[in-house]
């Protein structure tokens, strides 16, 4: 079990509070979808979850330990994933290098991750030669290869066609049976397909926090309704 806790968290940019004050506790099993319009705070929330930086106020903890000091327990996949100027294989192997795993273990894990992402045949190619969908699958394999407790994804399918999106989503369903998944997305149909739990952000605050079945069947009011009806 992985318990995520935000305690009185605020983040400021140029004197303006862009997220918070936020208090939330979450058991991260299955897939949690972060919804909300642009600039609502989804990305900042996700970055705080991973511990990319500490909040200006308050605490972000995983099982009682600060997110910043436990980054290695998790993986983060950016909207536009970095494509390292190396082979596909070396891209996927890189996090294991950072975690100083012995070579034999690295070889085995990378091979598994590439099979999982269906990129075994492309392993020796420069990663830059992959298609957009393949690049995102490679990035997900790179996030998965460390066996993280939780994977955080920021709009991973934002620029993908339906086929590539489907391939990525089926990987996520698989991953969610073993690890927690938190994913920021704009795409409501995608959230319906993936989510076990939903958080909606609006203006840097939490506007909804509910399990997916309830969220997608009940009638909403206020900002959540505005968002679901495409008004914000």
């Amino acid at each position: 079990m992985n318990r995520l806790a935000f305690e009185n968290v605020s983040v400021f940019r140029n004197g303006k509070e862009i997220l918070g004050p936020l208090d939330i506790e979450l058991q991260t099993t299955g897939i949690t979808c972060l919804l909300g319009p642009n600039g609502a705070g989804k990305s900042v929330f996700l970055n705080l979850c991973h511990g990319m930086f500490a909040p200006d106020k308050g605490r972000v903890d995983w099982n009682g330990v600060s997110a910043v000091s436990t980054r290695n327990d998790r993986s983060f996949m950016f909207q536009t994933a970095a494509v390292m100027r190396r082979s596909v294989w070396a891209n996927v192997a890189f996090p294991l290098l950072a975690q100083k795993l012995p070579k034999s273990e690295r070889m085995e894990r990378v091979a598994q991750a590439l099979t999982f992402a269906r990129l075994t045949d492309q392993a020796a190619q420069p990663a830059a030669s992959l298609s957009g969908g393949e690049k995102q699958r490679m990035a997900l394999a790179r996030a998965w290869v460390t066996r993280p407790k939780v994977i955080l994804l920021d709009e991973p399918a934002a620029n993908l066609d339906p086929g590539s999106t489907h391939a990525l989503e089926s990987m996520l369903h698989d991953i969610a049976t073993k690890s927690g998944v938190i994913i920021a997305t704009h795409n409501l149909p995608q959230a319906r397909r993936l989510a076990h739990h939903v958080l909606v952000f609006a203006n840097g605050k939490l506007a909804a926090n509910s399990d997916a079945d309830t969220f997608f069947t009940q009638t909403h009011t206020g900002q959540v309704a505005d968002y679901l009806d495409g008004r914000i």
Binding site: M52, F76, F78, A82, V83, M84, R85, A98
Partner: peptide, 27 residues
């Protein structure tokens, strides 16, 4: 190279030495 890798390197908790080696190799 570093501009592209920055986020990835931070997210992976890469040590300063690994950061240096990585960007030099990829450049």
């Amino acid at each position: 190279v570093f501009r592209e890798y920055r986020g990835l390197l931070i997210s992976l908790n890469a040590s300063p030495l690994l950061v240096l080696r990585t960007v030099l190799w990829d450049a």
